Computed example of a mutant assay.
Amino acid sequence: MSSIQVSDQTFIAADPVRIAAEIAAADRWRVWWPDLALTVREDRAEQGIRWAVSGPLTGTMEVWLEPSLDGAIVHYFLHCEPTGVASERVVELDLAAMNRERRVAGKKMTFEVKTRLEKGRAPGEAPKARD
């Protein structure tokens, strides 16, 4: 099990292809995860993307898009270890705070995408095809 382990999900009422395009925009990654270096391991198009993570954390991150109703559930996973910390010293870190920080970053990412893609859409209204 990883020391940093985040799993979260958010529903976005938009076409999964549009959601995938937002998440695949590499210029946004630095905004969402400013201290992490991400390398695409697998671009799954409308199903999401998987990265190798380096920087202060080493491991993997994934956004998986599960079509649902008139949109998709965005599943966010992060499995990492602190970089440069001996395994016997990891217990000395504030892992709860580190996990919370990464969970909040993932939620900010999904809410930013949700806000952009659902802009102007009234509750119960069908998703817009394009902006």
Rank of each mutant, 00 (worst) to 15 (best):
S3N: 09
S3R: 06
Q5E: 09
Q5M: 08
S7I: 03
S7A: 14
D8Q: 12
Q9C: 10
Q9Y: 12
Q9K: 14
Q9S: 14
T10R: 14
T10I: 13
F11W: 15
F11L: 05
A13D: 11
D15A: 11
V17L: 13
R18L: 12
I19P: 02
I19D: 06
A20M: 03
A21M: 08
A21V: 11
E22W: 04
E22L: 07
I23T: 12
A24R: 13
A24H: 14
A24F: 02
A25R: 15
R28V: 03
W29T: 04
V31I: 15
V31S: 09
W32F: 11
W33N: 04
W33M: 12
L38F: 10
T39G: 07
T39V: 08
V40F: 03
V40M: 08
V40G: 03
R41P: 01
E42K: 15
E42D: 14
D43L: 04
D43N: 15
R44M: 15
A45C: 13
A45P: 10
E46H: 14
Q47I: 07
G48D: 02
W51C: 08
A52N: 10
V53H: 02
S54C: 05
S54F: 00
G55P: 03
P56H: 09
L57H: 04
T58L: 04
G59Q: 10
T60E: 13
T60W: 02
L65I: 08
E66N: 11
P67N: 03
G71S: 07
G71A: 02
A72Q: 11
A72P: 05
A72I: 09
I73R: 06
V74D: 01
H75W: 09
Y76D: 13
F77D: 12
F77G: 04
C80P: 01
C80I: 03
E81V: 06
P82E: 05
P82A: 09
T83M: 08
T83P: 06
G84V: 07
A86G: 15
S87A: 14
E88T: 12
R89W: 06
V90S: 06
L93K: 02
A96H: 12
A96P: 00
M98E: 11
R100C: 06
R100I: 01
R102I: 00
R102M: 08
R102H: 15
V104D: 03
V104P: 02
A105W: 01
A105Y: 00
A105G: 02
K107Q: 04
K108I: 04
K108T: 10
K108Y: 09
K108W: 00
M109P: 00
M109E: 03
V113K: 04
K114A: 04
K114P: 05
K114G: 03
K114D: 00
R116K: 15
R116G: 00
L117D: 07
L117N: 02
K119V: 01
K119W: 08
A122E: 13
A122H: 14
P123S: 11
P123Q: 07
E125L: 12
A126R: 09
P127N: 06
P127I: 06
P127R: 02
K128R: 15
K128W: 05
A129Q: 13
R130W: 06
D131T: 02
D131K: 13
